[in-house]
């Protein structure tokens, strides 16, 4: 099947500042993607451009094979739930859902009704009377019940407690299993969602720094430590993500390839100490190192 999303050399610049810098990736149908990175990395900007709510400075976007800007064939298949979504203040929750039912062709009212009960949303309550968490819940109900072939959630759970977030993950997986669709989950709560992801895209300072299958990342990242020369010799063949030194000792986080057991055995044989790196540790390392370097630059 053709790709659901294809982005090439996508850039969004505000004056000299590039919020998104030459990003390219493709998304296959019916998979759950994680768009990960720190706050302000450029994730939201990318998703705004995907949904044609923001217009790119340069680069190409194809969603379902077509440019999304002012394109109903694309937009009606796409549901983008974002933290900053505005609703008319005097409207009731029921009004918002009624509009969603009209705009999303795959809308499922039964699911919407069930989710309303799950999240304890009073349909007659007006938007301006809702708490932050309830507002997030409205977005979650719309996003799930839309069953849009491309559903995007951008930090959809602000103001929700762990129980409600767990409910969201449960319902998402349940409905996804029955009605597969392409899902993009954008979040900085990596540890909560990483198990659900099939593929991971990591954005840092406007650039795409990782585009990999989640399962292939698990176990491939290792931290080896030992004498500098030995670490250097071992690290030579792999992509190095992070390095920390302590005198003549050094530890390096590497993205290895091949069977993790073999790599591990070879490292131990070379006299190095080996520690595993979890997916979320890996992403934190990928995106935090540059932050401190940037702080150094600023000084």
């Amino acid at each position: 099947m053709a790709n659901v999303v294809e982005i090439r050399s996508l850039t969004k610049a505000y004056g000299d500042v590039k919020a998104v810098d030459n990003v390219s990736f493709a998304l296959e149908p019916n998979r759950i993607y994680g768009l990960l990175g720190r706050n302000g990395a450029g994730k939201t900007t990318i998703m705004h451009m995907l949904s044609a709510q923001l217009i790119q400075t340069s680069g190409d976007i194809a969603v379902f094979g077509e440019a999304p800007y002012e394109n109903n064939r694309v937009l009606s298949q796409l549901c983008f739930i974002k933290e900053s979504q505005k609703y008319p203040e005097s409207s009731k929750i029921a009004d918002v859902l009624a509009f969603a039912a009209m705009t999303f062709p795959n809308w499922n009212q039964e699911l919407a009704d069930r989710l309303m009960e799950d999240f304890r949303l009073p349909p007659k309550r007006r938007i301006k009377k809702l708490s932050r968490g309830m507002l997030s819940s409205v977005g979650i109900v719309v996003g799930l019940a839309s069953r849009a072939p491309l559903t995007i959630f951008d930090e959809p759970y602000i103001g929700l407690d762990a129980v409600a977030r767990g409910l969201f993950y449960d319902r998402l997986l349940e409905d996804y299993a029955e009605y597969p669709r392409t899902v993009i989950l954008s979040t900085h709560l990596i540890d909560e969602v990483s198990q659900m992801l099939e593929h991971v895209l990591v954005i840092d300072q406007g650039r795409l720094v990782l585009d990999e299958e989640a399962e292939s990342l698990r176990g491939r990242a290792l931290t080896v430590s030992g004498p500098l020369a030995k670490v250097n010799a071992f690290a030579a063949g792999y992509k190095e993500l992070d390095r920390q030194g302590l005198g003549s000792l050094c530890s390096a986080t590497l993205l290895t390839n091949g069977s993790p057991e073999d790599v591990r055995a070879r490292a131990e044989l070379a006299g190095l100490e080996v520690a595993t790196v979890s997916l979320q540790q890996l992403i934190v390392q990928l995106t935090s190192g540059k932050m401190s370097r940037k702080a150094d630059d600023a000084r």
Binding site: D191, S194, Q195, E215, S216, R218, G219, A221, P260, T276, V277, S278, L279, Q280, Q281
Partner: peptide, 8 residues
């Protein structure tokens, strides 16, 4: 799950 090994 142990996030440092493949979940499958």
């Amino acid at each position: 799950m142990d996030e440092s090994r493949p979940i499958f």
